[in-house]
Nucleic acid binder design. Structure first.
Length: 206
DNA sequence: TTGCCGATTACCT
DNA sequence: GGTAATCGGCAAC
């Protein structure tokens, strides 16, 4: 098994973590031995009490958001729109409820499994959105609040061959119209990658 | 290519 | 009871 990124990686400034996670590899090894993985091509930073788009806005603590106050390097998976899951990683120190949402992957391992579940999709479309990547990697409630620094089943690691591609940024997706948080450039992506989610990054010219 | 809409449920007020 | 860090289908342009 390749080495998970260390706790220190996630204990830094959330914006830096979000940008630095782009290009790295998310791995999920299932109980039956199947290995599902993909290159992270898009992320978003969520900045805690002062971020109107964060679940932890205003320092809110609920059964759902409790994980956000925990240790950096744990997973935060929540159920949304009655049908989908979203996968996040907790950042910063204990008590500071910030996280990075993983928004899109380029599928790398386990393509047969992913195609079998979504036969009508092209390979690059199997995980090009936060809900879709959870379907592709089979991430759900059971994977919430896992320590992805210590786990050998769910972790993020360095790619064998890093891509030398520019990282673009833009406003976050799906967070409504309140405040000027709509415009904060907290979304990061591998410039021009086919597996980026919709909508397109506005400031990136292909 | 863009935009609207319905699906479906946990969570919060 | 309203709404959400979404997706896929379909209509219109």
């Amino acid at each position: 098994m390749s080495k998970p990124l260390p706790r220190e990686f996630y204990q830094r400034c959330t914006i830096d973590v979000a940008r630095d996670l782009v290009g790295r590899i998310l791995v999920h090894v299932l109980p039956d031995g199947r290995r599902l993985s993909g290159r992270i091509v898009e992320t978003e930073a969520y900045l805690g009490p002062e971020d109107p788009a964060a679940h932890s806005y205003g320092g809110k603590v609920t059964p759902r958001t409790q994980v956000m106050y925990g240790e950096a390097g744990r997973s935060y998976i929540y159920f949304i729109y009655g049908m989908y899951f979203c996968f996040n990683v907790i950042t910063r120190e204990v008590g500071v409820p910030e996280a990075v949402l993983i928004r899109a992957l380029e599928p790398l391992e386990g393509l047969e499994s992913m195609r079998a579940r979504r036969p009508h999709l092209k390979d690059f479309e199997l995980a090009n959105g936060p809900g879709k990547l959870c379907l592709a990697l089979e991430l759900e409630r059971a994977q919430n609040d896992i320590d992805i620094v210590k786990s050998d089943k769910l972790y993020i690691t360095e790619p064998k061959s890093p891509l030398n591609v520019a990282i673009c940024d833009g406003p976050r997706v799906g967070i409504g119209n309140e405040h000027d948080a709509v415009h904060w450039p907290l979304r990061f992506g591998l410039a021009g990658h086919p597996s980026l989610s919709k909508p397109r990054f506005p400031n990136y010219q292909e």
